[in-house]
């Protein structure tokens, strides 16, 4: 299974390590043409405004909006996947029917790590929240996977997984395995069609 990691800016190396640790093949994606080579895409953490600007400049915004690839967004990545972002007129990729609020746990001095319970999973996940966003509203087709202080921090829909935090800064493979299972499901669905 080939998992792409959008390598414009941010924690690219860490996701690479996680994908390989889960037994997948990690591919760094810097040009849109390479999107056709992969089975799923990770949108890493970084600065969402910086990543968005580079996505526009290199045709990723259009290409990803019309793409059927399974996608996994962490932190800045979930902001990119959201349909709505508080304080912005429009969302970026409009993949997940959610409204995200940026920096909703405060500034860097308030950033924290915590062990998270994930709905449907026995294993807890170690999660690092860095100037993290949260999911203020989740649509009907969106399944809530985890919350912190009553704030939604992990969601999934059919092909999209969005989380507010950084498992890639830890050795906890829970969410990467979860995503790769989603990718596997998507591949077998495509085969049966």
């Amino acid at each position: 299974m080939k998992i792409g990691i959008l390598a414009l800016q941010g924690a690219v190396r860490e996701h690479h390590r996680m994908v390989e640790a889960c037994g997948g093949e990690a591919v760094l994606i810097r040009k849109v043409e390479t999107l056709s080579e992969i089975d799923g895409l990770i949108l890493p953490g970084g600065e969402s405004t910086a990543i968005r600007r580079l996505m526009d400049r290199y045709g990723f915004t259009e290409a990803l909006r019309s793409s059927g690839l399974p996608m996994f967004g962490t932190c800045a990545g979930v902001i990119l996947l959201a349909k709505e972002v508080v304080g912005q007129e429009t969302g970026h990729l409009n993949k997940l029917d959610i409204t995200v609020e940026r920096n909703s746990f405060g500034r860097q001095v308030d950033s924290f790590e915590v062990e998270l319970e994930v709905r449907g999973l026995e294993e807890r996940a170690l999660a690092v929240f860095i100037r993290a966003p949260h999911i203020a509203v989740a649509g009907n087709d969106v399944q809530v996977l985890s919350e912190v202080d009553g704030k939604i921090v992990a969601v999934r829909s059919d092909r999209h997984l969005g989380i507010s935090f950084h498992p890639e800064l830890t050795d906890s493979l829970v969410f990467h395995k979860y995503f790769m299972d989603m990718v596997k499901e998507n591949i077998s669905k495509k085969m049966s069609v």
Binding site: Q9, A11, V12, G46, E47, Q108, L169
Partner: peptide, 9 residues
């Protein structure tokens, strides 16, 4: 981790 997020920037 905060600095990791700034990589490539």
């Amino acid at each position: 981790g905060m600095a990791e997020m700034q990589k490539g920037g």
